[in-house]
């Protein structure tokens, strides 16, 4: 017997109430019915359940990501506006060795990497050991690998594994 995904159901109810903008008994009832139905439908698609540990690590990770997004936005804007001379910018693919195996952790890592301008997720090798990124400003490969490994991957491993 599978456990009922409580968090998913509650999230769906909250989204329904936010979309309606009310918390009247009728909309709560309809929200509960819809959430339970959708939860039953979606439980077929989610064979892997996340095991979350050390949730307090989410807070520093979130602030790191916000700071990095703003910083890399400024970096990409400088390149686009031509403040960095064009022949200094060398863009290309970069292979990063990866130890994270949990699919939920990988999904969050993908979201972080794609929403940071300047880096884009290109490919993950079949055994999950090598992550290929496309980097706009490939100035220092070791620095990029260090950022991915220590700033993002190690907190994600401590949360999910």
């Amino acid at each position: 017997m599978k456990r009922v995904p409580v968090v998913l159901t509650l999230t769906l109810i909250i989204i329904w109430l936010l979309l309606n903008g009310t918390a009247s008994p009728g909309s709560i009832l309809l929200g509960v019915i819809l959430a339970v139905l959708l939860m039953l439908a979606a439980s077929q698609f989610r064979p892997v359940r996340p095991r979350l540990r050390r949730l307090y690590l989410v807070v520093p990770l979130f602030f790191h990501v916000v700071v990095d997004v703003v910083r890399s936005n400024i970096g990409v804007a400088r390149i686009v506006l031509g403040m960095v001379s064009r022949d200094q910018v060398r863009s290309g693919f970069l292979d990063v060795p990866l130890d994270l195996r949990d699919p939920h952790g990988l999904a969050i890592l993908a979201a972080i990497i794609t929403s940071t301008p300047g880096t884009a997720w290109a490919d993950l090798s079949a055994d999950g050991a090598t992550l290929t990124l496309h980097v706009l400003d490939l100035k220092d490969e070791a620095e990029w690998i260090r950022i991915i490994k220590y700033r993002y991957e190690s907190p994600l491993r401590r949360i999910f594994e």
Partner: peptide, 29 residues
């Protein structure tokens, strides 16, 4: 300003893989 810069990047950057990074500025910030 950031969204406009991202769209300019879509126009100015030399190849497709570089141009991927332009719209992601508008998407995030």
């Amino acid at each position: 300003l950031f969204a406009l810069t991202g769209a300019l990047g879509l126009l100015r950057l030399p190849d497709f893989f570089s141009r991927m990074h332009g719209p992601s500025m508008g998407n995030t910030i």
